[in-house]
Amino acid sequence: MADEEEEVEQVWSWGAGTDGQLGTAKLEDEHLPQLLSLTSLASISTLACGGAHVIALTSGGKVLSWGRGSSGQLGHGDILNTLLPKPVSFFDDYVITQAAAGWSHSGFVSDSGCLFTCGNGSFGQLGHGDNMSQTSPAKVSYFVNKSVKMVACGMRHSLVLFAENQVCAFGSGKRGQLGFSSDRTKSVNLPCLVSGLEDVEVVRISANGDHSAAISADGHLFSWGRGFCGGPDIQTPQCLPSSLTFREVALGWNHALLLTADGEVFKLGNTLNDQSEKQQRQADSCEALLEKVSGFDGVKVLQIAAGAEHSAAVTESGDVNTWGWGEHGQLGLGNTNDETNPQLVSQGSKDLHTEEIKVYCGSGFTYTVKRKQGLSSSPTSS
């Protein structure tokens, strides 16, 4: 017998679970991380977490989904909740490379650059030219020959990054989250170009709540939509005036997390939605609202994630930290308390063979995926 190394994933979930979004086969909240013993998740490469549903992509480009399905957002052709990961059979003949989960809709990007959407379409957030919902993924015809790179789904709107680094938006625009013009647009059901990014090399987009954001190749943050901490809504993308270089943005309903190229975490707004006197004074100044997250001094952060009103980060040493709203146990600390500063989440003993940890946040729940090197035995010829 010879030993061969293979990658092994561990998937953990905690927080709000009453729609089956934790994948535990139970309809209840979990205040501590739960290790999922699901063979269907053995080869996942990434997750997308929405209002109460989860999308998983396998390393081979297949799709599984579970949780709330009342609007068809799971893509299974029905409006049923699913307690355990279930393959999306529509994609059996496709390779899906990226996915996004909104409050009640979903988006999928194929290796050929096509975009598919499903779920609630009542605000036009599916981009099909109508306000109909879809229980199975449907190809968005606007992008058929446009080579889509990435999709992001907010509460009731969607963003798409496609060929030549252009950004389109569709869905609800009540708070400026579509980024079209200074005129308030209630909603659109066909993709339209976002204004002001034509000369920007966008490499990453993000959406959540009524917020939209983009990161440029040179590390600038552009944001638009609902104002943070009571500030005015922003109708078109505005570049954050900062000398910092950002490589990742994660949006919540009232806050944004920003990760710099040096592994430092900053925030705009706050995760607990309370208006302190200081925040009221600063509401009109986006630059003044940019604040370094305490608790990571001397520690490099590799990845960030944001739920509705909670936040998470993974450090270089493999620690997962959470903070913010904790009502459903989404901080994974064994209680329902809110936390203003990052707290260490315990997920069993540390494994020296762990290669990578990723954290993902839904509106009131959290997932981590740990990928590590395992040993498998294979027979040798005698």
Rank of each mutant, 00 (worst) to 15 (best):
D19V: 00
D19M: 07
G20F: 04
Q21P: 01
L22D: 05
G23W: 02
G23H: 07
G23L: 02
T24H: 05
A25V: 00
L27W: 03
E28Q: 15
E28S: 09
D29S: 07
H31F: 08
P33H: 03
P33A: 03
L36F: 09
L38H: 06
T39R: 06
L41W: 03
I44P: 06
I44L: 09
S45G: 14
A48V: 03
G51W: 14
V54S: 00
V54F: 00
V54P: 05
I55S: 00
I55P: 00
L57W: 10
T58C: 08
G60M: 03
G60S: 14
G61Q: 05
V63E: 06
L64Q: 04
S65V: 02
W66H: 05
R68N: 14
R68S: 15
G69M: 05
S70V: 06
S70K: 07
G72N: 03
L74A: 10
G75L: 10
H76D: 03
G77T: 09
D78C: 09
I79R: 12
I79Y: 14
P85F: 06
P87C: 01
S89A: 12
F91Y: 02
D92G: 00
D93T: 12
Y94W: 12
V95H: 14
V95C: 14
Q98I: 01
A101H: 13
G102F: 15
W103P: 00
F108E: 04
V109G: 05
S110C: 04
D111M: 05
S112Y: 04
G113H: 09
G113K: 08
L115N: 11
F116H: 13
T117C: 15
C118L: 12
C118M: 08
G119I: 09
F123A: 15
Q125M: 10
G129I: 15
D130R: 02
M132C: 10
M132D: 15
S133M: 07
T135I: 13
S136D: 10
P137G: 11
A138N: 05
K139P: 02
V140E: 09
V140L: 09
S141T: 15
S141V: 14
Y142A: 13
Y142E: 12
N145H: 08
K146Q: 15
S147F: 10
M150G: 01
A152T: 13
A152H: 05
C153L: 10
G154F: 08
R156W: 09
